[in-house]
Structure formats: C-alpha cells, structure tokens
Design a protein around this nucleic acid. Structure first.
Lengths: 352, 352
DNA sequence: CTGAAAGCGCTTACAG
DNA sequence: CTGAAAGCGCTTACAG
C-alpha cells in the first residue's frame, strides 16, 4: 500500500512476468500469447503448448488493470455493505456476500465492496461505476420505494437483486427466497409432528415480506387440514419484549395451557419473534417443543444457540443464481427466481 | 457485466468524460488536468480553477484501471472472507469488513473481497496480488501456526492483521482488542454491582485468546479485592450443552443456591459460554442478574436477544487503526495496537 | 495461423 | 507554470 522500498520493488519487479516475457520465452509475438490465453482455438496446437508452457514456467498472471483498460470492462460487480446491522437481514447479507465472493472466480470476475454515502443513496453506485471499478451491481435489501433500482434502470446499468424488487418485479432480475413456501413447510412439519393448533406471530401488516410469510402460514393450515382459524395470529415489531408480550397473548388465545402437551405451536416471521415465543412459553411454565412447538425464520445464530427450529435460506444457491442472472447475455429479458427454503429442525419442534 | 447493448454503449460513451475532454473544455493540455488533480500546488490558481470547473461540469471521474496501470499500484487491499462461519469470530469479522469498507474512501483506496482456496491457504493471496488487483492485505483470524504471515513477510507484501499475530508479534503490524482488559472490566463492573463471588467459565487452557481472557479475570479479582479464589473456574468447548454442564458445576462450586441473591456471578470467555451459564442459572430456579450475574464476550446478536451483558469489541476503531498501520510510510517499523473494549450492560448483570 | 500497429486513459519525469 | 513525449500491460481488428 505504501510506496514499496527499493528492495521490495526490485524483488517484485523480478518476480512479475509480463506478456512480453512470455512471448520471448515462447519465441512468439505478444499477441499470440494473448490469443493463446483468450482465444486458444485460433492458435495452432504446437504453438499453444509452447506458450502455455512458458506461462506456467514464468507463473504469468495477466495484470487485471491492463485488461480492464483495454477491454473497457471491469469484470467486477459492486456490493454495498451496510454498517447498520439492524435486525433480521444483517447476517444473512454478510453470508450472501461471502457466497458471492466464493462463486465469483468461476466466472472470471471479482467483488468490490463499497459503503453507502449517508447523504445520497445512489452516490456509492454512481462513483463506483464512474471510476470503472465495476460494471454492474448486486443489490440486496431492496426496500419499498428504493431509488436504486430506478436509478440503475435509467442508466442502463446491469444489476441483479437478492430479494424481490417489489416495486418493479417485472423489469429487473432478482432472486429471492420463497418465504411463503418456508412458512408452509414449517406448518406442514409441525402438523407432521402432531401439533394441531398452530398460531402465527408476525410483523404488523403492510410489509411485503411479512405479509408473504403470513400467507404461507394460512396456506399451510389449509394444506395440513388443521382446524386452527387463520385469525389466530398476533403481531409485534422486531423487538424482544414486544414479541414476548404478543406471543403471550397468542398462546392465551390458542389455549396453550389447557390443551394437551404437544398440541399447540407457533410459527414466526423471524427468529427474534420466535425467541419471544420461547420466553412466553417458558413464562407459562411450559417447555418449548415438548409442550408448545415454536418455529422461527432465518436460522440465525440465535436459533442455533436456542435450539430453535427455523426456516433456513439457501444463501449459496441465491448467490449462484445472482451471478447467473447478472452475467446473462445482453438482451436476455429480465428473469426472476424464487428459491425454496429448507427447515432446520431442532428441539423447539420436538414434542413429547 | 454482459456485453452492453449498442444503445447502452452509446449512452455510456456519451456520458463518460475522459481527461482529454476536460483538457479541451478547460483549454489546457491533459497533463495539466492531471496535475490539477494530483499536484494542485504545481498549477497556477486561475488555471486550477478553470480545470476544476471543467471537471465538475463534465462530472469527470478518473478511470481507476488507467491510474492503476500507470502508477503500478492498485490502491486496494484484499480481505479474505471465509464461508465457514463457525462460532465466535464469524460476525465480528463481517462487521470488521464493513467498517474497513466504510473507512476506505478516506484513504483513496478500496477493498477487494476474495475467498480462500480450500486446497491452498495462500493461493488466494498469491493470485489476487499477482493479478495486480491489490497491493496489500488485511488479515483476520490468524491462527497459531498460520502460514499466511510468513508467506507475506517473505514476499515483502504489506499487510496488517486484525488480531494478534501470535507467532510473530514483533515482525508484523497488528491491531487487536485487549480481551484481558475486557474481562478485567467485566469483573470490576460485577464487583461494582455488588456481586462478590465471581467465577470464570472459559475454554480449555492452551488457546492464546482464551488464556488471555482468563488472565483478565484473575486480574479483575485482585483489583476488586474479591475473595473468590482464582481456581473458581470451569472449562468447556464452544458448545451449548457442554457449556451448560460446565456452568452448572461452576455454580455448584460457587455455592450459588445457598448464597444471597445478587452475590454470585460468572464471567465468560464468549457469549455462547455465557448462554450456557444463563441456562444453568435458570435450571437452578434462579434468575440471571437478580440472583446470579452473567457476563459474556463479543456482544453478539445472541447477547442482545438474551439481555446478556457482554464485552464489546470496538470494531470500527480496529478498522481505522488497521488502515493507518497498513498505509504507514514504507520503512516504518512494525507497530501494534491493543484496543480497549467496552462493556454493554444489560439485565444479566443487574442484581435485585 | 501469426505478427505489426494502434490504442484503452491515465501519470510522470523532463524540457521549455 | 505548462505541455510534448513516453509508456504502464494488455487486446483487438487487421494484414499478411
């Protein structure tokens, strides 16, 4: 990072082979080396072998900046990381970035992380793009009324979103996890385990993600033939005390204390809500799982630590799908993909 | 990412100003533009103003790849992200990457994320460096016997580590959080709150981080003048059930059930261990905080969710220190910095 | 199938 | 204080 010392310059210079060095070593011109690497079909087999041999011997690695300059392409995607780790999404997105990074080399691209400008939502995107550091973006955490998709669309910047672009689902490429299917599976699992009264603890109506998950619960009740009324739901914001209170009311309405052990359960829109449910269960002198089933969403560290059964997002699959969509040939119409979550089963849904 | 469509190429080309465009607009040569931007002191004031004005008007942003190529410097640091999020460090490192990214623009640099090659620990470093994508690295999670510091040292690659380089502390630049001071503060806080019997729940001896934290507990006992014996400790690996068992034994030895409420406490080397302690406390029919104080380490989501007092690492400070060290002029001798953690106080250390 | 030429967008000594 | 020249390391039409 700092100016290299003379000694280190020398050693670096000595160890770095350029395409010209390879050309000399192989006895060809430098564009034949380039062809051998980028269009091997245009090079005669014996020549190819000689070149590749020299590449190997000299440990030649093309300088990315030179390629970028010449190709007028960064072969990189930007990913905005957000310092405010509030609630639900934080760690999922960290994990998503990791999986994106893991899968990038397969496509000959790399990931540039950048932070948002607090005063201008699109500034980081504009800047990163204008400097030629990236030629596209992977978006995440798209909110309702998010200005980023519109800006990117207007400037014809390639991007893909992890999480539905609720405002413009048909104009953009996105991959999302099917929360509705996740809740459906959670209810099916609970019914399978013998719980018959399955309530729902969600967020206040109006958030697309939350409403979607609630719909999954309703689906699940119907599919499992449970008699629970689709009104047996309570709401709380993403706060432990609120969640605990709401869960208490829900358990009351479900009649958890007077029903047989292992017949009542609560599915939740998040692990934090589920944590509130666990507390409310214990506050009634009951044991999660044995007496009352509880299922969360996101399979966070908290879920693992608390032995909480939770809906798990296939983050690595989402990352792979994101690359595929972003790298699709130009002119490909926008596509969307909904991924099926899985259920990580733990003690909180084990009756008896 | 994909080949831009003709339309988008046109619009992009139209919107991207180069240094030559700026030069024309300002009526100077292109190297005067460059000087105005990079060495403003060498440019006459009126010229400077004219140039800067044109830069503004044309929204000129230098193309990073051209600068990199010409300067033979990437002005970027690599950061290895790890898909295996096992245990303690995972989220702290995610957060660290974010803070690194937030602070990077201030130094005119950017962060390139890369994933490890499962078969070769240094391959990712070698590759990222050889391609000229970065000219240095920020290391994290350095293990005992870690080959990376040696490799980087041998190749004279600038790097800084978040977390002590235990094998070569004197040869490298690192910033770390003083876990020993954190535990000391935790004990002081508990003593201040009136807890007088303060045991320790840690990892099996031999891990440098764990031993360091234990030493902090011993320090704290002495400093607070507590009569707890420095033998009142138990060990468990990073596993909830084990931790719960060990915590139970520790509470037993401390005589938690027969002592007055609010006189016994347990400080732990991690939040997971502390979670085990919370469970063990409840298993005895006692209430964390009111009856038995519990303090964890790392201030994870789990701590927040469980109302667990926990030692908090100043991650943003660590990131800033890392940049400062990495960007120090060449020839600067290796430096190290130990950051003071803080305590996030919650209900688990509130007696009465 | 191979190579001579041009050029991507910058910066850096170096003359003037 | 400013500008003409050279060049960083590649790739891409284009001749031969």
């Amino acid at each position: 990072m700092s100016e290299p010392s003379p000694a280190s310059t020398a050693s670096t210079a000595a160890s770095r082979a350029t395409i010209v060095d390879v050309a000399k070593a192989a006895g060809v011109s430098r564009q034949t080396v380039s062809n051998a690497l980028n269009r091997p079909d245009r090079v005669a087999a014996p020549t190819l072998e000689r070149v590749l041999d020299a590449v190997e011997r000299l440990r030649f690695t093309p300088m990315v900046s030179a390629q970028q300059l010449r190709r007028q392409r960064a072969s990189a995607a930007g990913f905005e990381v957000n310092p405010s780790h509030q609630g639900r999404l934080g760690h999922i997105l960290d994990e998503f970035l990791v999986e994106l990074t893991v899968d990038a080399p397969r496509h000959g691209i790399h990931v540039v992380a950048f932070a948002p400008d607090p005063t201008d939502v699109v500034a980081g995107y504009r800047q990163t793009l204008a400097s030629g550091l990236v030629d596209g973006f992977v978006l995440a955490d798209t909110r309702h009324g998010d200005p980023r998709p519109d800006w990117l669309l207007a400037h014809e910047v390639p991007f893909v979103s992890f999480g539905r672009v609720w405002d413009r689902p048909e104009l953009t490429r996105w991959v999302d996890v099917d929360g509705r299917a996740g809740l459906r599976a959670a209810v099916a699992h609970l019914a399978d385990r013998g719980y018959v009264h399955v309530g729902f603890l969600g967020w206040p109506a109006g958030s697309p993600v939350g409403d979607d998950r609630r719909a999954g619960w309703v689906d699940g009740l119907a599919a499992a033939g449970l008699t629970t009324s689709p009104d047996e739901a309570e709401e709380a914001v993403q706060d432990l005390d609120e969640a605990t209170g709401a869960a208490g009311r829900l358990l009351d309405r479900l009649g958890a204390v007077r029903r047989p052990a292992g017949s009542t359960a609560v599915v939740c829109a998040s692990d934090l809500l589920a944590l509130g449910a666990l507390r409310a269960v214990r506050a009634l002198g009951l044991e999660p799982g044995r007496d009352v089933g509880v299922v969360g969403f996101d399979d966070t560290d908290v879920a693992a630590a608390m032995q909480l059964t939770s809906v798990h997002q296939p983050v690595a699959d989402a990352a792979r799908a994101a690359w595929r969509m972003l790298l699709a040939p130009a002119g490909t119409p926008p596509v969307a993909q909904l991924l099926e979550p899985t259920l990580t089963v733990r003690a909180s849904s084990t009756p008896g």
